[in-house]
């Protein structure tokens, strides 16, 4: 049976170990899912082909309030600039569109929308999204890769006490004496 491994790496503080653990699972024919908080923290890392990386920020972005915000703040203005920017105005509207996103949309998103969203949304949203990934993955091996992942791991183990869990692949696999 194919080994299913879930690596919790929500804190992104031990990236090298995570990348190597994930590569080892793939190399030995298993399936591995790495759960991360944000792809931005991992942009310098290269996961081995076959490693499934699930980004909680991206998952949360699919929720309705964030989709509406993106439509209002980014998509609609882009369409408007495109409609206006034909012919000789094309270059000017392209630059204006970029400036709008940089100077207005990004700032409104960061300074106004996100704080309000985080204040109003249920604090359990990221937790529930993470737990959904855990359920979907149906892992038989859980690797806890950093401190930020420990609370989620404890909740998972409360629900599935028989699940094999450890703080790194080398400490889960019975190692032959070197």
């Amino acid at each position: 049976m194919t080994e299913q491994v879930l690596i919790l790496a929500l804190g992104a503080t031990r990236k090298r170990a995570v990348v190597e653990d994930a590569a080892e699972v793939v190399a030995r024919g298993g399936r591995v899912t790495v759960l991360i908080t944000s792809a931005a923290d991992w942009r310098r890392e290269r996961f081995a082909p076959g490693v499934r990386v699930v980004d909680l920020t991206e998952l949360e972005g699919r929720r309705l309030p964030l989709r509406v915000e993106r439509a209002v703040l980014y998509r609609a203005p882009r369409l408007a600039f495109r409609a206006v920017g034909r012919g000789r105005l094309a270059g000017w509207t392209k630059r204006a569109g970029r400036a709008y996103e940089r100077r207005i949309a990004d700032r409104v998103h960061r300074r106004v929308f996100l704080p309000a969203y985080h204040r109003l949304r249920n604090d359990l949203v990221p937790q529930r999204l993470a737990e959904r990934v855990v359920t979907e993955t149906a892992a038989d091996l859980l690797v806890v890769a950093d401190p930020a992942s420990i609370p989620l791991a404890a909740r998972i183990v409360r629900q599935s006490p028989a699940l094999r869990v450890g703080y790194g692949l080398p400490y889960l696999t019975p190692a032959a004496p070197s």
């Binding site: 806890v144 989620l152 909740r155 183990v157 699940l163 190692a175 004496p177 070197s178």
Partner: peptide, 26 residues
């Protein structure tokens, strides 16, 4: 607050997540 949750979770996981293994020299 999260740090406290980490400590609590760590205590819960000890029985599950700390596995004796082997290293160099046996």
């Amino acid at each position: 607050g999260t740090s406290d949750a980490v400590d609590q979770g760590y205590r819960e996981l000890i029985a599950h997540a700390v596995h004796p293994g082997r290293t160099v020299g046996g």
